[in-house]
Nucleic acid binder design. Structure first.
Lengths: 351, 351
DNA sequence: CGATTTCATGTAATCCATTACATTGCGCTG
DNA sequence: CAGCGCAATGTAATGGATTACATGAAATCG
């Protein structure tokens, strides 16, 4: 039984950990090796300018040599901030959100925050799990892209902002577009092309922005003096399949229509596909307008006419508001409304 | 100067915080109100069975009434584990990854972990920032979907596994498909359809799996007795635009080709679009095969023939391996190879 | 030159929960 | 009834950093 055998437990680290590049973990050890106090080590790392040139160099050398990373848990516990924010997305596979998230991340990066993405699948339980991270002080705030504000037992202003969606009468800051106007505008465009029977594929009624889009649709019909036909409205869940099903429904009912306005691009893609597979031509027989302007809508054939949301700006603005809020919990809640723009492509044509 | 004025600082909370549902934060306060020690509160929350029925009830009542959430930082600091893992994705807007992530999340959920998503955009700096969370003890481990293993100063086995990608000769457990075989199979399918001039749109050569796909392409050509024409290979970055550019390149060089094999679906979509906009028909003039089977490839027109990766299984398996590793750092690294399957749709036809 | 700043650093309190160890009281055994 | 074991709870150490306050030395001032 000579020297160190195969499986030695890492118990009671021998106190000779001075010179060799062994694993080292705490400020204490760094301090001991660099021959200073823990306070000085901490200072050298946090505010180097208040430590003398020489000491600072020595400490940094040791830190580097031993690959020391301060324990963020301990730090965050003490300072009561994490510089982490959680972005809640109902569905990461929706390309619309991807770009909003990019916007969020850009601002986060600029201001020294990191973004953790949480996919909720619109599920309350998962939503709550992420929201609890704030209650448990593992994150400083939340940007949610869903129309439900998670419940956080928190004193004062909730460190939450809403992007893309909003909640009526809530004290939560939000950034979103004027969905009524955008939808009105899109439907109106179809009207100017001569369409009179315009179908509508709605999104879930639980979402205020979907209600707004529907309202915009009605408003445009009304203004054009067209009568609303309930048989030409279907509700979908934003999926491609929902778009297909809606078209099947319309066709099966036998009411004629020459245009379809969809509450998002994926349903529009599904609608387009269903029409084509039934032998109808887009846009010659039926025009289609989507909503969001996701990356793929440029590449469908025909390419999709759609309402382009300022996705990046929505994300940037939301994150900016959150930072503001974190820096000063007193700032009053704001609702910021950006505008959207109709992008005309190949899926729409004259009646 | 009577009672409490407008702006009172929250300093030295008056010790009358007994009955009213005020904001309360620490075990200490809960303990005081429930008339027990902090240890008992902690126990009532962690292992209720070792606390007497009555005490437990009382504590839970107080916890609930005051909306107490234990400070996770303090807990994690003490217990040295967070039950958080980070999933690193190069690009969240790539629908392929979305489904892998779903798989990861499923297993995480089943085993009591939460997943934090980090988008790296293949950027080393951002990658490192997330990796540092492990070094800083803010997360227990990492599942990366990129072919670079982040550098973590860590004693012993890195708590990292690789999903979809792998790194040659690394001691990192990985799950991925047999890309050589999958690509060979896809190209071979084109051969059996009678194609002889088959172009190839490669992915970045930095990625081993892309090299494998290219190798599979060569292998299939060789087996079929076809000569490899370097002019019919282009390198892309996985984007739709890259697919378009590749086709422009092939066409401009004037070498004829009747089929294109693409290293992912998005480049295939781009390729298809470029061909169609040049007046070529798919699949009558040119057949196209993609790779991944993302959600949209079913809905292009024509729908895309592609190699379907078992996305969910890749994610599930990767997370399972990580959990294993976290529970026992001694388990040897494994490379697990799943198999992929060619899905024939409308974008391929006989020469 | 004595007094006062300023600078660099050290000592120890603090953040909040977990948990090893200590204590108390009760029921049971021999 | 002494003695033991067990159940329930309490006391205090612990995890690793930050930072208020203290200290000593050097620089500046009148």
């Amino acid at each position: 039984m000579s020297s160190e055998g195969g499986k030695r437990k890492k118990k009671g680290v021998p106190p000779n950990a001075a010179a060799q590049p062994v694993r080292v973990r705490t400020v204490k050890e760094i301090a001991a090796i660099a021959n200073v106090s823990v306070a000085t080590v901490s200072r050298a790392l946090q505010r180097p300018e208040i430590v003398s040139e020489e000491t600072r160099r020595r400490i940094h050398e040791v830190v580097k040599r031993l690959g020391y990373t301060p324990n963020a848990l301990a730090r965050n516990l003490r300072t009561a901030r994490t510089r982490l924010i959680v972005a809640l997305v109902p569905d990461i596979s929706n390309p619309f959100f991807s770009e909003v998230i990019r916007g969020i991340e850009q601002v986060a990066y600029e201001t020294g925050y990191s973004v953790l993405l949480g996919e909720t699948q619109s599920d309350l339980v998962r939503e709550q799990a992420y929201a609890d991270m704030v209650a448990a002080r593992q994150a400083d705030g939340i940007v949610t892209m869903f129309h439900r504000i998670p419940n956080i037992p928190f004193e004062g202003r909730l460190p939450v902002v809403n992007a893309c969606e909003y909640v009526k009468d809530s004290a939560i800051s939000s950034v979103y577009i004027d969905n009524v106007a955008a939808a009105t505008n899109a439907v109106n465009y179809l009207v100017t092309l001569g369409h009179r029977e315009i179908a509508f594929i709605a999104g879930p009624a639980s979402s205020p922005i979907c209600v707004d889009r529907e309202q915009g649709y009605h408003l445009a019909l009304e203004r054009a003096g067209l009568t609303f036909n309930p048989a030409l409205t279907a509700v979908g869940d934003f999926s491609i399949e929902a778009g297909e099903r809606a078209i099947e429904l319309f066709l099966s009912q036998g009411h004629p229509f020459s245009a379809v306005f969809c509450s998002n691009d994926e349903m529009a893609i599904g609608a387009m596909r269903a029409l084509i597979s039934r032998g109808l031509r887009v846009p010659e027989d039926v025009s289609i307008v989507g909503f969001d302007d996701i990356r793929f809508s440029r590449y469908t054939s025909p390419s999709l006419t759609t309402v382009a949301q300022p996705k990046n700006a929505l994300g940037r603005e939301a994150m900016t508001m959150l930072i503001e809020l974190l820096n000063d919990p007193e700032v009053p809640p704001r609702k910021r409304v950006l505008s959207a723009e109709l992008v005309v492509r190949g899926s729409t044509g004259p009646r």
